[in-house]
């Protein structure tokens, strides 16, 4: 579900920015860049429970993708 605050337009605006930043970061530094981005976002948002849920959701979506054909 899209966040009401961000909405489709917001996420569509964020998507290429995220991709461009990842592309602009040397491959060896990408992991650290993404961790820093996550920590800054969590700090700006200010809610631990939401940040932890985001981690769980991100892991769950990765696990789903790894299972093969979507149902």
């Amino acid at each position: 579900m899209l966040s009401p605050e961000l909405g489709r337009g917001g996420l569509e605006a964020l998507f290429p920015k995220l991709a461009e930043h990842i592309d602009a970061t040397p491959p060896a530094a990408r992991e650290r860049f993404l961790v820093k981005a996550f920590l800054l976002l969590a700090d700006a948002h200010g809610r631990l429970d939401t940040a932890l849920k985001c981690l769980d959701d991100a892991k769950a979506s990765a696990a789903h993708a790894g299972r093969g054909t979507p149902q």
Binding site: R32, K36, L40
Partner: peptide
């Protein structure tokens, strides 16, 4: 290591870390 290094780098510009 990754999380620690990220925090150390953030700490250079973001005092809250």
């Amino acid at each position: 290591v990754l999380a620690r290094d990220a925090v150390l780098e953030l700490a250079t510009r973001h005092p809250q870390f």
